[in-house]
């Protein structure tokens, strides 16, 4: 377990964030931190509000509460603002450009930096191909023809092309075969080593807890539990959060 040094200022800090759909609050008063170079994970059952949380953080949905990036506080930001702050989101549905080639998808990933004189698109592209050799093999293929795992890699690669400081991943293992899931989590661990901070939203709790430093468990739009990932990994309450508490098997599981 990586202990959080109290001196590390959080790259992303969220205080009391709430998101409503009409009269219903889907996310209520969530606070969380992602320190520089760390992986924070948000786990929880379906419908807990995980995707809503990420959408609000990316500026796709309006929200209430404070979002602080690198010491600069905003509320209900726009997408453009979050992108400018160096945040990238890989959404649950991946949102690839299906009828364009893998390479075009990647090149467009660097669009947000195309006016930046320090940005070298070719070098970044080589870097991404180095990280995902599979994408190089398929670089002329249309994104829509890729397999599920390759699509996830392309979505990750496209996000990395913009050289983000914080990568927000929404269920990267969704719909992937178990072997591919292992690959994806390996990639996430490697990304951390290269200094990218990650906010990982996952339903695959065990894999997420294994790779993350700190974890938040979401239930019905609220943080029900939080703590160092390694400690939460063995907590029987997590099983209950996912599969229900009322069964007599609950005692069996806790025992």
């Amino acid at each position: 377990m990586t202990a959080l040094a109290p001196t590390t200022p959080p790259l992303l800090s969220v205080r009391d964030l709430s998101v409503s759909y009409g009269p219903i609050e889907a996310v209520s008063g969530i606070s969380l931190d992602v320190p520089e170079g760390h992986i924070a994970t948000v786990i929880g059952p379906n419908g807990a509000g995980k995707t809503t949380l990420l959408s609000a953080l990316m500026g796709i949905l309006p929200s209430r509460g404070a979002i602080t990036v690198d010491g600069v506080e905003t509320s209900s930001p726009t997408i453009a603002r979050m992108i400018a702050a160096g945040i990238a989101l890989v959404p649950e549905q991946r949102a690839l450009f299906a009828t364009m080639t893998v390479e075009d998808n990647l090149v467009l990933g660097g669009f947000r930096r195309h006016r930046d004189p320090h940005y070298d698109a070719d070098e970044t592209l080589r870097d991404v191909y180095g990280r995902f050799p599979r994408l190089w093999e398929r670089h002329r293929q249309l994104a829509g023809t890729l397999s599920g795992g390759e699509r996830q890699m392309l979505a990750l690669g496209r996000a990395l092309m913009g050289k983000p400081r914080l990568l927000m991943l929404d269920e990267p293992s969704l719909g992937l075969a178990p072997l591919v899931v292992r690959d994806v989590f390996q990639i996430i661990a490697e990304l951390k080593r290269t200094g990218v901070s990650i906010l990982l939203v996952e339903q695959n709790a065990r894999a997420a807890l294994k790779v993350a430093d700190h974890a938040y468990v979401l239930e019905l739009g609220r943080v029900a539990m939080e703590g160092p990932a390694a400690e939460l990994a063995d907590d029987p309450r997590i099983v209950a959060a996912y599969l229900g508490k009322t069964s007599r098997h609950q005692e069996m599981l806790t025992a």
Partner: peptide, 23 residues
């Protein structure tokens, strides 16, 4: 061209385009 591809990308996937910074 990058701008041409950016336009094409918006037509293909609006959310994806916005996420890579094509407003």
């Amino acid at each position: 061209t990058l701008y041409g591809r950016a336009l094409q990308a918006t037509a293909v996937n609006r959310l994806g385009a916005e996420l890579v910074g094509i407003s």
